[in-house]
Design a protein around this nucleic acid. Structure first.
Length: 385
RNA sequence: GGGGGUGCGCCACAGUUGGAGAGGUGGGCUGGACUGUAAAUCCAGUGUUUCGGCUGAGUAGGUUCGAAUCCUACCACCCCCA
């Protein structure tokens, strides 16, 4: 069984479950650090295990295809071996690059032609090609090739785009059924719901996606600039339609508060660049709120951040020796001077916090204390310190 | 001691060789943004102000309708000679 739903908590749609892959299990709800180009930026694989305790990380089809290229990945025996990561992995299909590289791509029925951001060369991604590359990369969970429309988009554009994503999905599912695993482990295809901020389109897309009977389902096209209420409303709406016996993955979300709100609405999996990118820019997430460590007010603050014990070891409640504690004044200095260590320590800090947060959410779901815990946590998480 | 050169905004560089820049670029500094990573990136502000202005090109004078620009003295720094 790919996914086991363990418990749906009282007074909320939040649930706890376990995903089983050939590279091990994932306890949900889970946050997945983004490792676009074969690395979670500024973080070593050892640190993903301790103190971060990541259970699964992401890679990106477009970026890995351009560099190092799938030939080298295949020589290595797949991305797991190439980077030295034996836990589960997920690859995005390149669908997000259809959105983020809008200036350098052309969408057609057949697929999307990208101009490489590295050398300007042209590359055609079709649903089949995206899956082939993902097979060559070898992630445990692979994503359907979709179009992620920008916000705002007209209803007409969003509907046309959604229908294209659905047709591409048919081709992905067909291609996946014909494909054999390359490295001896299974690869599970997740389709992606689209439909923008339009409730009826989202319903239609959810039904279409659910009918494919894939091992898990994803919600795309959110966190692209829409109001947060839209993100929450659409997440809830989708979770009510997507089957309960399969994991639900909300792509590209989000802030700590976003995670708790969307877990509350029935989401099981998240990924986001926010903890790593913002760490490099000096924004630290804590249980007490958000700290912009660049701010002058920390220059003479020689105290530690209030960690509340969340930088735990895998098997104890003690602070992990792998978690480097530094004063706010020192962290500010590192970020100000653009020292590499600043980006590293702050990335480690944020990811450790994100994984702790979803772990706490899971514990509270299992104890049926999630709803009250979430209500207390969210205002704290959104505070600016 | 003699000769030559250069001086403006927190810093550097560029530019201005009689018709007013509170101006350029980069850095620093102070904020802000960042959500399936073209992001260790990007944006804004950075004399003063009662928002109308005011002050400002090393300092002090001078020439001129008008000076950052020309002249004189002084100061500082740089180079060359002794």
């Amino acid at each position: 069984m790919f996914y086991k739903l363990q418990h749906t908590t009282q007074g909320s749609a939040a649930r706890a479950g376990v995903i089983t892959t050939d590279h091990g299990q994932i306890e949900t709800p889970i946050f997945m650090p983004v490792g676009t180009a074969g690395t979670v930026k500024c973080i070593h694989q050892h640190q993903l295990i301790d103190p971060i305790q990541a259970q699964i990380i992401l890679g990106n089809t477009y970026h890995l295809y351009l560099r190092p290229g799938t030939e080298i990945l295949q020589e290595a025996g797949g991305l797991h071996k190439f980077i030295g990561w034996s836990r589960p992995m997920l690859t995005d299909s390149g669908g997000y690059q259809v959105y983020s590289l809008a200036a350098n791509r052309k969408i057609a029925e057949e697929g999307v032609t990208f101009r490489s951001h590295i050398d300007g060369s042209s590359h055609l991604f079709t649903p089949e090609r995206s899956l082939d590359i993902q097979h060559e990369i070898g992630a445990d969970i692979i994503m359907a090739f979709d179009e992620c429309p920008p916000y705002p988009s007209t209803r007409e554009y969003t509907e046309t785009s959604m229908e294209l994503t659905h047709r591409w999905l048919d081709r992905c599912v067909d291609h996946q059924r014909k494909s054999k695993p390359k490295y001896g482990h299974r690869q599970h295809l997740f389709p992606i719901v689209q439909g923008g901020s339009f409730d009826d389109l989202r319903r239609k897309s959810c039904e279409y996606i659910a009918d494919q009977d894939m091992p898990g389902n994803a919600i795309g096209g959110l966190s692209v600039g829409e109001p947060t209420e839209d993100m929450y409303r659409i997440s809830k709406l989708c979770c009510e339609i997507l089957p309960a016996e399969k994991p639900r993955y909300l792509m590209g979300v989000g802030t700590p508060a976003n995670l708790l709100e969307c877990i509350d609405r029935g989401i099981d999996m998240f990924d986001c660049v926010l903890p790593t990118r913002n760490a490099r820019h000096g924004l630290l997430y804590t249980a007490d709120g958000i700290v912009n460590i660049r701010n002058k007010k920390w220059a003479n603050d020689h105290s530690f951040l209030d960690y509340r014990g969340w930088q735990h070891s895998p098997n104890s409640d003690d602070i992990s020796p792998a978690f480097p504690q530094h004063t706010k004044a020192y962290l500010r200095h590192l970020i100000h001077t653009k020292e590499a260590l600043g980006a590293m320590v702050c990335s480690l800090h944020n990811l450790t916090f994100f994984l702790w947060l979803v772990g706490q959410a899971r514990a509270h779901i299992l104890n049926d204390t999630f709803a009250i815990w979430k209500a207390e946590m969210v205002p704290m998480l959104e505070r600016r310190l």
